[in-house]
């Protein structure tokens, strides 16, 4: 069904030299995405602690995926394909920071970081001050229900 749509849809361009140039750009984008992925993997191996590794992990997740989607759009040259690929980018943009935040929070609380590599840690005193009774903040998932408007719905 999707293949039919792709075939039926209009293409960006038809002329031969332009197509070659677009294919070339697509190839460069793929190489860049592959480079970012490799750099992320190397960063994951070489960076000292879990929090630093998370930074290395974020870039193929965002820029790499955007580059590859752009490469597909350029090499297939169809508007429908571009529309089909938008959800991929939207989901990545929405979910990657959430999972990164949750993993970072879990990593911090589990002590999966090297305090020696931290120049400043302004979170630790606040955690200590809040004590065991209440951690600073409920994060994105724990709702204390105080600041929130009343809940409606059935």
């Amino acid at each position: 069904m999707i293949a039919d749509l792709v075939r039926a849809s209009t293409t960006f361009v038809d002329s031969e030299p332009v197509a070659t140039i677009l294919d070339g750009i697509a190839a460069v984008l793929i190489l860049l995405a592959a480079f970012l992925t490799l750099a992320a993997a190397v960063g994951l191996i070489r960076f000292p602690d879990a929090l630093a590794r998370l930074h290395a992990a974020t870039k193929p997740q965002i820029l790499g995926v955007i580059l590859v989607v752009a490469a597909i759009a350029l090499s297939v040259r169809s508007w429908v394909v571009l529309l089909l690929l938008i959800p991929v980018i939207v989901f990545q943009l929405l979910t990657a920071p959430i999972s990164a935040h949750m993993v970072a929070r879990a990593g911090y609380r589990a002590g999966d970081y090297d305090p020696d590599t931290l120049a400043v840690d302004e979170l630790a005193p606040d955690v200590a001050a809040a004590g065991r009774s209440e951690l600073p903040g409920g994060g994105l998932d724990d709702e204390p229900g105080t600041a929130q408007g009343q809940r409606g719905g059935s």
Binding site: I2, A3, V6, A26, A27, L29, I30, A33, A34, T37, A40, A41, L44, A50, R53, L54, A57, P60, Q61, G64, V65, V68, V69, A71, I72, L74, S75, V76, S78, V81, L84, V88, S99, V103, A106, G107, A110, D112
Partner: peptide, 30 residues
């Protein structure tokens, strides 16, 4: 640590997305 493994497997999944996408872009299918 467990967190390291999670991060790495997450990136592994993203790598898979990029591989699948690069294959489409290079061979021109969808």
């Amino acid at each position: 640590s467990l967190v390291d493994r999670v991060i790495a497997s997450d990136v592994l999944l993203t790598t898979l997305i990029i591989v699948v996408g690069a294959d489409m872009a290079i061979s021109g299918h969808t």
